[in-house]
Design a protein around this nucleic acid. Sequence first.
DNA 1: CTGCCCCTGTAA
DNA 2: TTACAGGGGCAG
Length: 268
Amino acid sequence: MPELPEVDAVCRIARRALLGRRIMAATVCRARICEPDSPRDLILALLGRRCRRVERLGKNILVLLDDACLRIHLRMTGNLYPIASPARRPPTAVAAFELDDGSGLVFDDPRGLGVLRLLLPHQLERLLASIGLDPLLPEFTVERFAALARRSRAAVKTFLMDQRRVAGLGNIYAAEALHRAGIDPRRRACRLSRARLSRLHRAIVGVLQRAVGSAARAYRRPGQFAEGEYFRLAVYGREGKPCPRCRRPIRRLPQGGRSSYFCPGCQK
DNA sequence: CTGCCCCTGTAA
DNA sequence: TTACAGGGGCAG
């Protein structure tokens, strides 16, 4: 479900619920999500800590506590939203938190692939060093983006989805940005001209900014969302359907183990 | 680089 | 019943 825009929306919801609050109780319903730590250790470390900041970096949600950081990754199907009480959590909940104002926050994840991990300061530093450029930060300049691309022999689509280089794009928005920039996803990143990298850079920022706004609106009311309901996709999931720009049928091809969608007409 | 794995839900 | 799913880590 979530790429950068959706994680951003969830992050805002988590921030509203957590900022300034103290964690009074925590439940882990699925031990796997906090591996390699045990749920017990995680819970004990969280109890009594106060939330000072909630930030998104790439697809990570970082809950900064007094002297540690709770890293939340939603992976494919994770979601965070407030609940009245931990007892009212859904059957698919993987974790739940009770706060000092009596409110609750649930980590819901039907597939249970999400990640919940407590990071000590040096572990947080290591994580920050390993995460690539976030396209919505001012550091994401054409120059830095081009420098990263020049060093990558991978297909540009794979390059865009590598979180150690650019952090936040997934299968959907990588495909959408490439379509907007008119670039074939199979091209090697290092072989793109400066002009095309510049167009791609602009396309990434444009697509994500637009999607962040839409996702924020879609998430405002609780409950699930369907992608097409809030954001019109040009190529993703539209195999065989006409390209909105040139009407040629969209093609799907496997790339790095997942489906890549593109228009053979206007992506060269 | 590819392929497999984690896990569950949904659609063809 | 099978294929596939928006993520990511790992082995080979």
